[in-house]
């Protein structure tokens, strides 16, 4: 039986105003893949996720998510945006933030119900945030906020999880814990994670793609120095850290 494509991009071109951001992107992500996309800032990583979510429409090319156009698949996608500048003082509790993830299932003019509250409790437990459910979101540490946003993405039981720079505001001690949550999740869903942190990504993901306007991807976890150099437009040294499990990539 052929593996089902969860995400499929064919010859996708995207530009903002007249500046090209993504050029000729071809990507196929199979069910239960855990794909890491790395690349420099401004390389189009967030834009690629927005294309998959249907928030940004490509100038050219075809996008299919879970067999449908992205807009129609949104209710089956969990999205963890890059949170650098949201209002930390916003009067909202962790529980209320996670509940927002149920909106797609509930819809307009209907109140949240008991099964929504149960789903929120479950999602909070899953990321270990039950005891912080009543806290205001800005009172939490960076890692805890990140887990709350993951819970919000999980609460609608998505088939595809998109994470944009999830470790940006998390200190390194929390990162390992964070990747353990993802290890657990990848048994149930397809995950695409965008990051500029090459080291951390290569340990936990199954496949890696490099993105800098163009996408360099050959369906495995091996990245050659040539690909990295093409991505970052400068020579890059691969560094392996000793204190975390790592894999040395073979030369080819």
């Amino acid at each position: 039986m052929p593996v089902k494509d969860v995400v499929r991009l064919e010859n996708v071109w995207v530009s903002y105003a007249d500046t090209p951001v993504l050029e000729d992107i071809n990507l196929r992500v199979a069910e239960h893949d855990f794909l890491g996309i790395i690349g420099p800032n401004g390389g189009g990583k967030s834009t690629l996720l927005k294309v998959i979510l249907g928030l940004k429409h490509p100038d050219r090319g075809m996008v299919t998510v879970l067999g449908n156009p992205p807009e129609r698949s949104r209710s089956r996608i969990g999205y963890v945006p890059q949170y650098t500048e949201y209002d930390r003082n916003f009067p909202v509790s962790v529980r209320e933030v996670v509940m927002m993830g149920r909106y797609g299932k509930t819809g307009m003019l209907k109140p949240y119900r008991q099964d929504d509250r149960d789903a929120v409790a479950k999602a909070l437990e899953r990321v270990g945030m039950t005891e912080h459910a009543g806290s205001q979101i800005g009172q939490l540490s960076g890692g805890q906020q990140q887990r709350a946003f993951i819970a919000r993405a999980l609460v609608a039981e998505p088939e595809l999880l998109l994470l944009d720079e999830p470790t940006a505001s998390v200190d390194s001690a929390m990162q390992t814990e964070f990747y353990e949550i993802l290890e657990d999740l990848k048994k149930e869903m397809t995950i695409i994670m965008v990051s500029h942190d090459i080291g951390a990504v290569s340990v936990f993901v199954d496949k890696i793609a490099c993105l800098n306007q163009r996408l360099y991807y050959h369906g495995s976890k091996e990245i050659t120095p040539e690909i990295l150099e093409a991505t970052y437009k400068c020579p890059v040294q691969l560094i392996a850290h000793g204190d975390i499990p790592h894999r040395v990539l073979r030369e080819h």
Binding site: L53, L55, R74, S75, I77, Y79, P81, Y86, D87, F90, V92, V97, M100, G101, Y103, G104, G107, R152, A156
Partner: peptide, 10 residues
């Protein structure tokens, strides 16, 4: 709180 997420959840 988060308009973009609002769009994502329809």
């Amino acid at each position: 709180f988060d308009e973009e997420f609002g769009t994502v959840v329809g």
